[in-house]
Design a protein around this nucleic acid. Structure first.
Length: 329
DNA sequence: GAGAGTGTTGTAAC
DNA sequence: GGTTACAACACTCT
């Protein structure tokens, strides 16, 4: 699930390779991804990318034609992968990455996630599925053959490289927007933990006027942008506060701990390249390294790393919510 | 084979 | 205006 650290990792990994790239054509393999902008292929053809920005979980590609921007939201299972012709031909692109000392995807699929039966649908690439719950799929070398069954939109560049938008569940979207609209969209996002606008007075103000529970506030993108379900649980754990608490009943020192935890957790996660839980890959096809550092998310029944108490899970605002009943109050 | 679960966001309902 | 509930979706596990 791409949250701020994952989207930022993608942005950083794509920034250099995509800069200056000229779009030759856009291949639409599933029109639903362009539901907000069916004319996108025509608009983008011939455009040259100048930079990549991000607000919260939304990627913003900018072009030499300054009045145009491309918005990409990966929602839950979206991936954005840049690949050269060699990788698209199905050559073992992983091999050279393993040599470089970076976490190879094939290795992760073998050891980190229990991949089970290979499911080979006729005409579709084999995809290994996780043994436990969740809808997402684990990462195998089959996923690296591009395009694959879930490659929905492919932006082809004039140098035989391409940017793949893969999405299992079709929630992701890609659309163009004039820059003045982008400015309005950016303005709807709340303060962001890694940006200068994330100040103590601004944070305090949020908690002074809200009446809902803590987790709902942390997940509200118009209030604080970039935090999703995984990091909301991790932030609450780091601050020692239960995510189910009503924000009006939080003590000043607890709000202060939450403020510090937001910055600390997001900074750590970005430094680790995000979290690969089900399907996240950065723009260079590598998984994130934060999963092993998670303290509560996905650890139901396992001992708390601080006190040994079993981590519990409940449902809050419709989301799975993990916490330590002893360390968090 | 049916139903629950997985989570982001826009929208409708309260 | 603020908050809550749910649909959208694909796929696996129970």
């Amino acid at each position: 699930m791409p949250e701020l650290p994952e989207v930022e990792t993608i942005r950083l990994s794509l920034f250099t390779p995509l800069r200056g790239k000229k779009i030759a054509r856009v291949e639409v393999r599933h029109p639903k991804i362009l539901r907000l902008d069916p004319k996108l292929p025509t608009i983008l053809k011939g455009q040259t990318i100048s930079s990549i920005d991000r607000i919260g979980k939304l990627l913003i590609l900018r072009f030499q034609k300054k009045e145009l921007a491309l918005l990409i939201h990966l929602k839950m299972t979206g991936q954005l992968i840049y690949a050269s012709g060699a990788k698209r031909a199905g050559l073992p692109a992983v091999a050279h990455k393993a040599k470089s000392g970076l976490p190879a995807v094939a290795h992760k699929a073998k050891s980190g996630l229990p991949a089970v039966a290979l499911k080979a649908k006729s005409g579709l690439p084999a995809v290994a599925h996780r043994a436990k719950a969740g809808g997402g799929h684990s990462l195998t070398q089959a996923d690296l053959k591009l395009p694959h069954a879930h490659s929905r939109v492919i932006i082809h560049f004039d140098d035989d490289t391409a940017l793949y938008l893969n999405d299992l569940r079709l929630f992701a979207y890609m659309r163009t927007a004039p820059t003045e609209e982008v400015t309005k969209i950016v303005a709807t996002y709340g303060i962001e933990p890694l940006q200068p606008n994330f100040t103590w007075p601004a944070f305090q103000k949020i908690f002074a006027k809200r009446k809902t529970i803590l987790k709902a506030v942390l997940l509200n993108q118009e209030v604080i942008s970039g935090i999703g379900n995984i990091y909301a649980d991790e932030i609450c754990y780091a601050a020692g506060v239960l995510p189910t608490r009503n924000v009006q009943k939080l003590k000043p020192d607890e709000v202060k701990k939450l403020f510090a935890a937001c910055k600390k957790i997001m900074k750590e996660a970005v430094a680790s390249g995000g979290t690969t839980f089900h399907s996240f890959l950065n723009g260079d096809s590598r998984p994130g390294g934060y999963r092993s550092k998670l303290r509560v998310y996905g650890r139901k029944g396992q001992p708390c790393k601080r006190c040994g108490t079993a981590i519990e899970k409940t449902v809050t605002v419709g989301r799975g919510t993990h916490f330590c009943p002893n360390c968090q109050t």
